[in-house]
């Protein structure tokens, strides 16, 4: 019986002077408040500092990077960016990334919303199985499929093509998108769709004129999420896209860093780094609410 009594509940019964714990608590909380702010600030600095350092370094000249790694540049070298963009081909890589990622995001949204809509709204034999086939893709590590995927793409003649990468990105983004959008379509009212059907609207009309416009918030969230994921993808292009002309920005940057090492164009490399960091940070700062909720939504449910 005694084990059932929570020791914390016995506390008030012990004769303890009332003000004493109160005082201790406020002193403790003031102290804790102060130190907590300190730690929180230190981590913030640790996160921002390397990024800021890279940004400032990208405006320096090569000797300056070596001689005064901490100071501000004496002259702001905007030409570093020009060199990185043109000579190191970061510009080409950037455009390659834009093409592949934008097409990939749109295609994965189109494919996934078609599947999700059908799975959420229609009863047919095999509905559950199909749902698990798609969602099951989330638990398989990409590494398992890597070798065969290379040969599938090769056999279709799609190695080193935009189309090959776009199709692979789009299909590999489907598992999570179908999972997310099916849940989204399920929450939408059936009555509206049925009313439209009764009014003589076709199934296609219901989908395009009612359901998809209503699903816009969901499509936007998943779109941003997929954009970031695809923009940051590294392994797939490394394997499927080995033509230097078609390198994506992550791949191109890593390649420059690895092959050039520390020998040549330091400042240009920092400029390239800045070029590849700033757009994603900008997208994040604009959409940060949707992104953090979107990214953590899967984990919280």
């Amino acid at each position: 019986m005694a084990t059932l009594i929570d020791p914390a509940r016995l506390r008030p019964a012990t004769p303890e002077p009332e003000p004493e714990p109160h005082v201790r608590r406020t002193v403790g909380s003031v102290l804790l408040g102060g130190t907590s702010q300190g730690f929180v600030l230190i981590w913030g600095v640790m996160v921002v500092f390397p990024l800021l350092w890279a940004l400032v370094s990208s405006f320096k000249s090569d000797p300056e990077i070596f001689k005064s790694p901490w100071g501000l540049p004496a002259v702001w070298h905007w030409d570093n960016f020009e060199r990185a963009w043109n000579e190191s081909h970061i510009g080409t890589y950037f455009l390659n990334s834009v093409i592949v990622v934008c097409c990939g995001v749109v295609l994965t949204l189109v494919l996934s919303s078609a599947v999700a809509y059908v799975l959420a709204r229609f009863e047919f034999p095999g509905n559950r199985i199909l749902y698990y086939v798609f969602v099951g893709g989330m638990v398989f590590p990409g590494f398992l499929a890597l070798v065969p995927l290379f040969f599938v793409v090769q056999n279709l003649g799609l190695l080193n093509t935009y189309l090959g990468l776009i199709l692979v990105y789009a299909t590999h983004g489907m598992s999570f998108s179908v999972f997310f959008l099916t849940a989204f379509f399920r929450t939408q009212s059936k009555e509206l769709a049925e009313a439209a059907l009764v009014d003589g609207c076709s199934h296609w009309g219901v989908l395009f004129r009612i359901m998809l416009p209503l699903a816009r918030p969901g499509l936007v969230s998943i779109g941003i999420f997929q954009f970031l994921g695809m923009w940051n993808e590294y392994l797939l292009p490394l394997v499927l896209n080995t033509d230097e002309q078609r390198y994506l920005v992550t791949q191109g940057l890593a390649n420059i860093a690895v092959t050039q090492g520390y020998h040549s164009d330091f400042s240009g490399l920092f400029a390239g780094l800045t070029i590849s960091i700033l757009p994603v940070l900008a997208v994040y700062l604009v959409f940060h609410k949707q992104i953090s909720t979107g990214m953590t939504a899967g984990a919280l449910k």
């Binding site: 992550t250 890593a254 960091i277 994603v280 992104i291």
Partner: peptide, 18 residues
């Protein structure tokens, strides 16, 4: 919270180069 999240939106490859 916004600042802490910065590295999460960067490519792992870019983080590696940094």
């Amino acid at each position: 919270k916004v600042v802490y999240f910065f590295p999460s939106v960067l490519s792992i490859a870019v983080v590696g180069v940094l």
